[in-house]
């Protein structure tokens, strides 16, 4: 079963999302948060060393999917991967999925035993998921009136 690492600038987001993702995974999937900085947990930022620790804590031969928020999270995640030995790095993947939706989908699919690239593909589908159907302005007016 693959492992998941949730990278956010915010420790609170990463930890909270971890809780949500755990519920989706139904146990059995190792999910680690990597939010904020090692020494200043509630300072916003990302920390390659913390991400590396998270990867190691969920590592298995099946691989690790990293979900990241944005900006330096990507760079720090890339840097963390560079610290890994080749054979581990080759089994890690940074997802393009949006963090929250991606973590939910990835946790669910990882829990179903899907493989790394399949889990990532499902998570990246979140890029296309709409949340609300926009009602055209004139129709909305009529409904409200």
């Amino acid at each position: 079963m693959i492992g998941l690492v949730l990278v956010s600038h915010s420790r609170l987001i990463a930890d909270g999302l971890c809780q949500l993702a755990d519920q989706m995974a139904g146990g059995g999937v190792k999910i680690a948060p990597a939010g904020g900085l090692t020494d200043d947990p509630y300072t916003l930022g990302t920390d390659a060393a913390l991400i590396l620790e998270a990867i190691e804590s969920v590592w298995s031969e099946d691989g690790v999917l990293l979900l990241v928020d944005m900006g330096s999270a990507v760079m720090s995640a890339e840097m963390a991967l560079e610290f890994l030995p080749d054979e581990q790095r080759n089994r890690c993947l940074i997802s393009n999925a949006p963090l929250v939706e991606g973590a939910i989908v990835a946790a669910l699919h990882a829990g179903m035993g899907n493989r790394l690239h399949d889990v990532n593909a499902a998570a990246e589908d979140a890029l296309n998921a709409r949340k609300v159907e926009r009602v055209p302005e004139n129709v909305k007016d009529k409904t409200c009136g």
């Binding site: 600038h9 904020g36 900085l37 090692t38 020494d39 200043d40 300072t43 916003l44 930022g45 990302t46 920390d47 390659a48 060393a49 913390l50 900006g71 330096s72 760079m75 720090s76 890339e78 840097m79």
Partner: peptide
């Protein structure tokens, strides 16, 4: 890497 936080952390790191 561990203390800067922004993009400058991984870059200077």
């Amino acid at each position: 890497i561990s203390a800067v936080g922004g993009a400058a952390g991984p870059l200077y790191g």
